[in-house]
């Protein structure tokens, strides 16, 4: 296992040393050694605190957008949902993509445990030091629906082999420069085969979304109302969501929707957030992980983004040049005369 971390650490150390980047952002051991925290590293010495097998349940994409200095060059260790979140954030001009150097790690799902650790794995998972086959039921729901285990939108992507070896694939020109700084020789590996994961994703999407689609409209409304009823308006989902990067969120009091001195109405709260991020949800599951009331938030947002994506032929987080479909018009719009988009 250590081998993957070593390779990733080596690449990151090289980038810092050669001044390719000013800062490295990754999860790593805190000062006590037992806690895993997001780290902003500027000193080569701290690189060996970085871990690649255990993740905090929070999005580095959101952290970088909120606390990072966008004029600094940053290397960030990301899963593909983090990378896709960053692509969406870049579209909203909250980070400068030319300053980001993304070191992607293939991720086949995370398990959220009571203690708070989250593991990424290949198709096996580590349980008390032993490699066990992946248990789909234990995966967090958004990961089961995920079609993008390989971070092709990152500059390089690292694959952890079951034996702990690490294979690196270069995705961009920037990625080449990143590998050039590594001190151990790193090979350019062929892309991973994702057919099995795509199949898993299709199966779970059909299950999660199909269950809702098969309900009668009235039943569906009751289902969502009963979910929203539990919402305590802690704003956790908004705070965790990488797409919700607004400095002045309209769900704050006295911005036209919610009166000062009142708790936001639960259904409106989600309806508003759905209209804002629905078409761009990257299914990272951060909202659901943050929710103290166990509301299946990411299922709802992912479902909307899939449905809306099918009208506009849009998939969020993959291509920085394709803009969110309700915030842009293109030439074809001019040719349509009807009131329906399709």
């Amino acid at each position: 296992m250590a081998k993957c971390a070593e390779v990733v650490q080596d690449i990151l150390r090289g980038m810092l040393r050669e001044r390719l980047v000013d800062e490295v952002v990754a999860f790593g051991r805190g000062l006590t050694g037992s806690d895993i925290l997001p780290l902003f590293i500027t000193d080569e010495q701290d690189i060996d605190r970085i871990v690649t097998t255990s993740y905090c349940p929070s999005s580095l994409a959101k952290l970088v957008a909120r606390y990072g200095d966008r004029n600094k060059k940053m290397a960030i260790v990301v899963r593909s949902c983090d990378a896709r979140g960053l692509v969406e954030i870049a579209k909203r001009r909250q980070v400068k993509p030319e300053n980001l150097y993304l070191v992607g790690i293939e991720c086949y799902g995370v398990v959220r445990e009571k203690r708070g650790e989250v593991y990424i794995f290949a198709d096996k998972m580590e349980v008390d030091g032993e490699m066990m086959p992946l248990d789909e039921a234990a995966l967090s729901p958004n990961c089961r629906r995920c079609e993008y285990p390989v971070p092709t939108m990152a500059d390089i992507s690292c694959r952890i082999e079951p034996e702990g070896d690490c294979l690196v694939t270069v995705n961009t020109e920037k990625g080449k420069a990143m590998l050039a700084t590594a001190s151990v020789p790193v090979q350019d590996a062929p892309p991973s085969d994702v057919a099995a994961i795509k199949e898993r994703a299709a199966r779970w999407q059909e299950k999660d979304f199909g269950d809702i689609k098969r309900m009668e409209p009235g039943e569906r409304l009751d289902y969502w109302l009963s979910q929203f009823d539990r919402c305590i308006k802690c704003y956790g989902c908004r705070d965790a969501c990488p797409i919700c990067v607004c400095k002045e969120c309209c769900l704050e009091p006295d911005r036209g929707l919610i009166k000062g001195g009142e708790y936001p109405p639960e259904t409106l709260f989600h309806a508003v957030r759905l209209t804002h991020v629905g078409e761009s949800c990257v299914n990272c599951g951060q909202c659901e992980a943050a929710c103290p009331m166990e509301i299946p938030v990411s299922k709802l947002y992912h479902m909307l983004s899939k449905e809306v994506g099918s009208i506009f032929n849009y998939e969020p987080g993959l291509d920085i040049d394709s803009l969110p479909p309700v915030s842009m018009v293109d030439e074809e719009d001019l040719l349509k005369t009807g009131v329906d988009f399709g």
Binding site: G218, L221, T275, E279, I311, P325, V326, S327, V339
Partner: peptide
């Protein structure tokens, strides 16, 4: 010039949202 094109896109999105929430 293009406000109505945005509206058309938003309405398409809203209709999907309503459908998912269980409103006709």
């Amino acid at each position: 010039t293009s406000g109505n094109y945005y509206t058309r896109r938003r309405v398409a999105m809203l209709k999907k949202l309503m459908e998912i929430l269980g409103l006709e």
